[in-house]
Amino acid sequence: MENGSDGRRSSAISDTELLRLIGQDLRAIYAEVIRQPLPPRIQATLALIDREQKLAERSRRVLPY
């Protein structure tokens, strides 16, 4: 790459193409993170939240007579 008149390097790639490439890289990184298993403490916390929500739903239901 050549230096421009203001001392900056001129880009051989358009902003649109650069943003597209960054988006591709981010999707690949996030996809890898999502494939990882949850840590046990987070799994336990989510299970606790799920149980609490189910209990709350049951307590809100009105039983028919």
Rank of each mutant, 00 (worst) to 15 (best):
Q43T: 13
R27P: 05
R51W: 02
R60A: 14
D15S: 15
D15P: 07
T16L: 15
M1T: 10
L19Q: 13
L46C: 00
K54R: 10
D50L: 02
V62R: 11
E17N: 06
L19R: 15
E2S: 06
I34Q: 13
N3Q: 14
L63W: 07
L26V: 10
G7E: 03
S5Y: 04
L38F: 09
E2G: 03
G7Y: 05
R27N: 14
D15V: 10
T45C: 13
E2K: 12
P40M: 04
Q43D: 13
R35Y: 06
L48T: 14
I42R: 14
R27Q: 09
M1F: 10
I34E: 15
A12M: 14
L48S: 04
S10T: 10
L46E: 03
S59P: 01
A47D: 07
E2N: 09
S10H: 15
Q36F: 01
R41Y: 12
A31V: 03
L63M: 14
L46I: 02
K54T: 04
I29L: 13
L38V: 00
D25V: 02
D6F: 00
S10R: 15
E52N: 04
I22K: 05
L48G: 05
L19Y: 13
T16C: 05
I49E: 06
R9I: 07
L48D: 13
Q43G: 02
R8D: 03
G4M: 01
I13H: 03
R58N: 07
K54C: 14
A12E: 11
A12L: 09
A31S: 11
R8A: 10
L18M: 14
I22G: 04
I29H: 09
I42Q: 11
V62Q: 15
L55M: 04
P40H: 08
I22M: 09
T45N: 08
Q53S: 03
G23H: 13
P64T: 07
E2R: 07
L38S: 09
E57T: 00
S11E: 08
Q43I: 14
R60P: 02
Y65G: 15
P40S: 06
I42K: 04
L46W: 08
S11D: 06
K54F: 02
A56P: 01
A12Y: 08
D6N: 05
L19G: 12
I49D: 00
L18V: 13
E2L: 08
R60Q: 05
Q36Y: 10
G4Q: 01
I29E: 11
A28F: 03
R35A: 02
Y30W: 07
V33K: 05
P40Y: 01
I29S: 10
I13E: 07
D6H: 02
A12Q: 08
I29A: 15
R8S: 06
I49P: 02
T16F: 06
V33L: 04
I42L: 12
L38N: 10
L19E: 10
S59R: 11
S11F: 05
Q43K: 11
